[in-house]
Design a protein around this nucleic acid. Structure first.
Lengths: 353, 353
DNA sequence: AGCCGCTATAAAATCGGTTGACGATAGGGT
DNA sequence: ACCCTATCGTCAACCGATTTTATAGCGGCT
């Protein structure tokens, strides 16, 4: 054992009486180990166990050019939408014996780029970017395609890019939410649209238009407000409060409100309460995402659930797949998965009286 | 440039006309570079830049036994208490040019241990454990002390152990919360105590007792309930709902309620609402932690703020400090930091009418 | 002339593991 | 007798850096 107190393969070699090569071959079950008799294998394995030998992954990575590490880039780790994805992702990677190198970009393009370089330097075998709704900078993602490392973007889809993505079916989800309100009898429905710059905004709105058209529902412009663009994740709440307040004051009256996402919906809840309106008695409210706080609010929020944990593990599966492909010198497959959303009915919606 | 498309130090050597050693010495500003004339340095640096040379951290780590990586073990990444700590931590590490290897233990001791091994294998230079209130298994932490790597536990303190910790001043914080209620005129105060197994429970309760005693306030047992032990992070909410409901039905009446933490308080909010009680008009409610949802609820929650982000960066500072100490062959310093809490007054409390 | 010290650079060892080439022995086929 | 193949291992190169040691020229001092 070296001075450092760490057991190397050479220590095992000495202890077992074989060479380092043989030890390596045996312990890894390399092709050549086919010819090595069981007795030898046993002796080497005992020696390794006795010494408590643990191969140094650094050395192994250096030689084999495989780090068993995936870079995980989060745009904002405090965003409640990101953490469940992260959980699913990290868990799936763990199962596959990969470790996650975490990078939180704080919504800063510069930081994203610097981190990207650091991760690539570290020879991550793949990259997963958890993009919340704030990411708008498409340029960053072209960086991704250029780096020749398998990459997957989780949480958002991008039209014209050639990176793999995992995202929810925004269109369908929004349709489901509206259908829910419609079936409850609501016809005068207010909308808090998402910021124009976000593709998910457009998709959700499209789902709304399609459903509305299919049942002949009018979408009155005086019941529609649009969230401003902003980079602060908590701004959604404040914006929800403000826009709802304005709609109440200046817009046409409504019996239900559909918000861009849960945080916005929570803002709406507060604004309605402040105006003395009860939810759901006087006004129903639906959100989108099903973040953790949606079920903890009073009243609990009816919402469209994004299966975030599943999206995380799916992303993991896709990078791992791509890594395997690279290993076999095949092309990196590009896939754009859309996961179905799911309506979760809670207390914030009810039938129109 | 090798076949792999990656530039090595030898490529720079060839390009500049010097040897790899000289290139290394120059680019790192090693002691020997003292003797190297500026012209040579310039030529080497230009060559490196022209080729876009980026040293391979794996190789460097192998040689220098320094990985520039800190292991970050989270007990439950979906816990809203953990993420802000994680943010502060990750940010401070980033500033110091360290990367974070993320491990989410999912509250499972077995997983914690397996991850610990993996991280140590990777030669992390330090370890930070973000412990939420669910961690009770002290044994795990002795593992920590034994591994001879600088370690810091963030979020919890432990009495009889010799690991560095960063935690909030629970006692003082709870005292502040109670004082706040007291000053508002409340005398009949209900309490949802934390699970007995948690040290923070005891500490917060002690703060409560001390303040109560100092002003001669009686703590009626019929207004006190205790959270059960459980490993599910969302159980706090359900428990809050249930215990509050029971107190309302069977206990003595109260005009204010102090919960163990914010999630429990949110549960209390729901239970009160269900019984037709208005917060804060009929009953004030205080939480503890100031997790993100505390400010988003209706009404927003008065609470005791743990400066989580600061706790994260402080933890980072402490590991980095310890790493430096190890580097200079000094002993690993053990510190137990208590950070002051801060009362955040929002809508859920008001003066007794 | 001999030695020291300074400058400028290169060679070689090292970190710890993996891997392709090769040696040695034994048995089987022609 | 000769070649071939299967078996059991080892050697040495290699991954990409860092660091210690070596080399070589030159000026100065005794």
């Amino acid at each position: 054992m070296g001075r450092t107190g760490v057991v190397t393969i050479r220590d095992v070699a000495r202890e077992s009486g074989y060479s380092a090569s043989t030890v390596s071959i045996v312990l890894n079950g390399a092709p050549l180990s086919r010819y090595i008799p069981g007795e030898t294998k046993a002796r080497i394995e005992t020696a390794a166990k006795r010494l408590g030998y643990r191969p140094n992954p650094l050395a192994r990575s250096l030689r084999s050019q495989r780090s068993n590490i995936v870079g995980v880039m989060v745009f904002d780790i405090t965003d409640p939408f990101c953490t469940p994805i992260l959980r699913g992702l990290e868990n799936a990677l763990y199962q596959a014996n990969y470790l996650s190198l975490l990078a939180d970009a704080h919504n800063e393009a510069h930081r994203f780029e610097r981190y990207l370089e650091m991760l690539l330097d570290r020879r991550v075998e793949g990259l997963v970017v958890i993009a919340n709704w704030l990411v708008t900078d498409i340029k960053l993602l072209s960086d991704l395609t250029e780096c020749h490392v398998p990459a997957v973007i989780a949480g958002r889809s991008f039209e014209n890019d050639s990176v793999s993505t995992v995202s929810v079916d925004n269109e369908g989800g929004a349709g489901m939410a509206l259908e829910h309100l419609y079936r409850l009898g609501h016809r005068e429905i207010a909308f808090l649209r998402g910021p124009k710059a976000l593709s998910s905004s457009g998709q959700r709105w499209k789902g709304i238009r399609i459903f509305a058209q299919s049942v002949g529902l009018q979408l009155a412009p005086k019941r529609i407000a649009e969230l401003p663009e902003s980079l602060d994740p908590n701004s959604g709440f404040e914006a929800g409060v403000q826009l709802t307040t304005e709609l109440l004051r200046q817009g046409k009256p409504f019996t239900a409100l559909m918000a861009y996402d849960d945080v916005t919906a929570l803002g709406a809840l507060r604004a309605l309460k402040k105006k003395g309106l009860r939810v759901p008695e006087d006004c129903s409210v639906v959100g989108f995402d099903d973040v953790a706080q949606a079920s903890l609010s009073v009243p609990s929020l009816t919402t469209v659930r994004q299966p975030m944990e599943a999206m995380g593990s799916l992303s993991a599966g896709m990078v791992l797949e791509a890594i395997k492909a690279v290993d076999q010198k095949k092309d990196i497959p590009v896939m754009r998965k859309k996961i179905p959303a799911e309506l979760v009915v809670r207390e914030s919606t009810r039938a129109l009286m």
